[in-house]
Design a protein around this nucleic acid. Structure first.
Length: 123
DNA sequence: ATGTTGACGCATG
DNA sequence: CCATGCGCCAACA
């Protein structure tokens, strides 16, 4: 059982137009927020066609990446606790992509920040 | 085996 | 507002 599946399943529940923080997902899954980032990192790499290595031989990268369930994971709806985007320095993710995706869902930025008060997803 | 590195968060200057 | 520092932990080299 891949420990990250729980993360993906949870993120899939974030509705369009809402966001959650890494800490929030971490708390709900019992994982370190940084581990949540790791999980999504694999996913984002996959979406951009460049997959980072996956060491768990029991669940190889290829199989992991081709899982249809993962195609629907809205990774862009996860942001940091300050309401900001944390993917701008990450390889394999085009600069500004996450912001664009969120704006397309009607989320408004003020000084590159999202109002968590208004947009935070409450399960 | 061991030190480093993050899509983090919080607390303090 | 920026700058550290620490807790955290899987993946890497």
């Amino acid at each position: 059982m891949n420990p990250y599946r729980e993360v993906y399943n949870l993120v899939k529940k974030i509705p369009k137009g809402k966001v959650a923080t890494y800490g929030q997902i971490g708390q709900l899954t019992g994982l370190d927020p940084r581990v949540v980032g790791w999980a999504l990192n694999k996913l984002a790499n996959w979406r951009t066609g460049k997959l980072a290595s996956w060491r768990n031989r029991r669940e190889p990268v290829r199989q992991f990446a081709s899982s249809p369930a993962l195609a629907a994971v809205p990774w862009h709806r996860v942001i940091n606790s300050k309401g900001g985007i944390s993917t701008n320095r990450v390889m394999n993710i085009p600069l500004g992509l996450q912001k664009v995706l969120l704006e397309k869902e009607g989320i408004k930025f003020t000084n590159d920040k999202i109002s968590l008060k208004d947009y935070r997803w409450i399960p």
